[in-house]
Simulated assay, not measured.
Amino acid sequence: MNVRPLRLPDDVEALSHLDVISTADTVLNVATTATGFSFTETPVSVPSSKNHEFLADVTSADREWADGFVACDGANITGFAATGYSRWNRRQVLCHLYVDRAHRGRGIARGLIEHVLDLGRANGARQVWLETQNTNTPAVRAYQAMGFEIVGLDRTLYDGDAAHETALYLAKPLVSTSERR
């Protein structure tokens, strides 16, 4: 696997062929406690599937990210990550991370994340921050295996078909506690 910077508009066609449907057979149920929140991973009777429509954001002039990376297997693009730097809070934000379904479990997401972490360090970021859904337990598990921890949530972020989902925010520090001050 090779990871390289995204080339626009050249990579758009290849990105359009990525199968980025996520499927989960569990959800992280969120409960309010006296001191915060707790999470319980619960099986669902029918696995949930979500097609992550990201291509319009890749080609939009209004996108919130500045840097993109693609993972390649030879000439084929197998994954995509997009990130932006928020100067005011020194946060590198992971806006998109997708791996083609046929290529999952091969370290592609980890390779893309490493490039985002490196860019964050180069930018002087204190952390890499991202958002995913409580219905995407495979992603939450993968991020946690890469050293991210859940740092917050929002039960009101989504509407429409996703109104029942809770946004989970995860972060991975890039600097030590003493350097954060």
Rank of each mutant, 00 (worst) to 15 (best):
T156G: 06
H115L: 10
Y169C: 15
Y158F: 14
A122T: 12
E131A: 12
R121P: 08
H164F: 01
L170Y: 02
M146K: 04
L117C: 06
L94T: 00
L174Y: 13
A163W: 00
L112T: 03
R110W: 05
Q127W: 10
D154E: 12
A122V: 10
V140Y: 00
A162N: 08
E149D: 13
L117H: 10
R90I: 07
V116T: 12
Y158P: 04
E165D: 09
Y158T: 06
Y98V: 08
V140P: 00
F148Y: 05
H164M: 01
E131V: 06
R141L: 02
P173H: 14
R101F: 04
L157P: 03
L112R: 00
A109T: 04
L97I: 06
L153Y: 08
A163T: 01
G124P: 08
L119Y: 09
H96D: 04
L119S: 02
H96E: 07
G160K: 00
G111H: 13
D100M: 00
A102D: 15
R104T: 05
T137K: 10
E114P: 07
R110E: 15
R91T: 15
A145V: 01
H115P: 05
A142G: 07
L97Q: 02
R106T: 06
D118Q: 15
L170W: 02
Q127F: 10
L94A: 03
R104H: 04
A171L: 08
T166C: 07
Y143C: 07
V99F: 00
R155C: 07
T135V: 05
V140R: 02
E114Q: 15
A142V: 03
G111F: 10
R104D: 03
D154I: 10
V99E: 02
V175M: 14
Y158S: 01
Y98C: 07
L97G: 00
V99R: 02
R106E: 12
C95A: 14
Q92I: 09
I150C: 06
A125C: 14
N136S: 05
E149P: 06
R91V: 11
H103A: 09
L119V: 00
I150K: 05
A139I: 03
T135L: 04
T135N: 04
I108L: 10
V128I: 15
C95M: 11
R126Q: 13
L119Q: 09
D100P: 01
V99T: 02
T166A: 06
Y98M: 13
N136D: 03
L153I: 11
Y169V: 14
E165P: 04
R141V: 06
Q144V: 02
V140I: 10
N136V: 02
Q144H: 06
F148A: 01
L168F: 11
P173A: 15
Q127M: 14
A171W: 07
Q92F: 07
R155G: 04
A125K: 14
G152E: 09
G107C: 08
G152D: 11
Y143V: 04
D161L: 03
A167W: 01
H164C: 01
A142E: 07
G107W: 10
L157C: 03
F148M: 02
V128Y: 11
W129I: 12
Y98G: 04
E114D: 15
N134I: 01
L117T: 05
V93M: 06
G147D: 10
A102L: 13
T166N: 05
E131T: 08
A163G: 01
G152C: 11
H96Q: 13
V116F: 11
G152H: 08
T132Y: 01
M146W: 07
